[in-house]
Design a protein around this nucleic acid. Structure first.
Length: 380
RNA sequence: GCAGGGAUUCCCGAGUGGCCAAAGGGGGCGGGCUGUAAACCCGCUGGCUCAGCCUUCGGAGGUUCGAAUCCUCCUCCCUGCACCA
């Protein structure tokens, strides 16, 4: 079987030769990927290791999707400069549900086992936990850049965070993983899994990492930062967000997201439009993708109102206070609305308005634009 | 436990009695430029019934005509020392 296909785009495949050895076993391998449920959405960047899982499934292997409902209570410290916020149990459950649904957009449901790590972690006794903690030293933990940085910078590191890699490692024990996938930021955690598996008398897993996808702001794509493209976002939203990435990222996105090569001399604009279309099509289908592009062309490139402008009722009165109307219609504070008007960012029927109080007749039925992309049709 | 340092507006971070709704940067927003993006330039960035008023500087009290700035207590964080059970 084509190993190159399975390890496409991989950064680390460790240890060397171990994957080949596993493949020679001739049985379906158990390919694990753990996901944190800190936010309700999977985004395009998180899709990358899922695409690897898909590749394994296409070769007949089994995907083990671990929903980190229990680990989310602690929060993965990887790459973090501060502690993560703690989510409520209800939020975790809600997120877990939508997560799986989205992941199944990419992976093959029939060859996927979905497991929650509370299944085994919740039942561990204190003695079990102690045994687990013996497998790693504080010095090993503090070697990690993220911990080292926080420690040196006087930032708090709670002991519970140190437990995170061990919990994730224990997941591998529980599901007897043959391979664990993850972003490059997971390398430490994945390798910890090997150590722990060995200590529990299991054949250690092969570790395969994929690159982190950089977003338009030059940071890694992350739900908490907000520079993400959620698989659940609307077609227009996905399209627009994709178009925000810088031209420099195009090659990388083609390689990682589409798993294709983009020829170096392509027109950036055309390439990006095609990329956006493909990303939307994956979540919403071809038709939606074409519509999303139409919307983008019309609203963003040509600066015209979209086809379907939301309507908003006008309040009573003969003279209307525009800031109040805008704040109501667009969900702004009236102060924000005033600033928008003062800066010439508000148009009624295509004309910039300066007045704060406007006769009702001028607003009734009018198309109102706030900034470049927000539109509303006022109804009386 | 002892000693010292710290908590500021979305984030980082200045500010030690009035000139502070609070410097600067980031982010965001608006405008310009443009092929989407980026870069660049200008402006804005607590709220409101907006030339005025109201609420903010970890929490609660207090001093003062006046406090983010001073005092008291509390909460949380960091560092060093001590502790080695």
């Amino acid at each position: 079987m084509p190993v190159a296909e399975l390890t496409r785009n991989a950064v680390h495949v460790l240890p060397t030769g171990a994957l080949e050895t596993k493949l020679e076993l001739g049985r379906p391998l158990r390919v694990k990927l753990g996901i944190d449920v800190t936010s309700p959405d999977i985004h395009v960047g998180r899709g990358i290791p899922l695409q690897r899982m898909r590749a394994f499934q296409d070769e007949g292997h089994t995907g083990i999707l671990i929903v980190g409902d229990y680990t989310t209570r602690i929060g993965d410290p990887s790459g973090r400069s501060t502690e993560r916020p703690i989510l409520s149990d209800e939020e975790i459950d809600r997120n877990a549900e939508t997560y799986v649904e989205q992941a199944l957009q990419i992976i093959v449901p029939e060859r996927t086992e979905v497991r929650r790590n509370s299944e085994w972690l919740a039942g561990l006794s204190f003695a079990d936990v102690i045994q687990l903690t013996r497998m790693m030293t504080v010095a090993q933990m503090l070697e990690r850049d993220d911990f080292a940085g926080r420690y040196a910078g006087g930032q708090p590191i709670s002991v519970s965070e140190l437990l995170y890699p061990l919990m994730q490692a224990y997941d591998s024990v529980a599901v007897e993983a043959d391979i664990e996938l993850g972003g490059t930021d997971q390398l430490y955690n994945l390798l910890a899994g090997r150590e722990v598996m060995q200590a529990y008398g299991l054949e250690p897993q092969v570790v395969l990492t994929t690159p982190l996808l950089m977003s338009w702001d030059g940071e890694k794509m992350s739900s908490s930062v907000g520079n993400n493209i959620p698989l659940t976002a609307s077609p227009e939203e996905q399209f627009g967000r994709t178009m925000r990435i810088s031209d420099d990222l195009l090659q990388e996105w083609y390689r990682l997201v589409l798993e294709e090569r983009l020829s170096v001399d392509s027109e950036p604009l055309d390439a990006k439009l095609a990329l956006a279309r493909r990303i939307v099509a994956r979540s919403h289908g071809e038709e939606a993708a074409v519509a999303a592009e139409g919307h983008f062309t019309r609203v963003v490139r040509e600066g015209r109102a979209p086809d379907d402008v939301p309507e908003h009722p006008l309040p009573d009165g003969d003279t209307l206070h525009l800031p109040a109307v805008l704040s109501d219609a667009f969900g702004l504070s009236t102060s924000d609305a005033r600033r928008l008007i003062a800066q010439g960012g508000v148009k009624v029927e295509g004309r910039v308005v300066e007045a704060l109080d406007i006769p009702r007749a001028e607003l009734a039925g009018a198309l109102v634009q706030a900034g470049k992309r927000r539109f509303v049709r006022l109804t009386s």
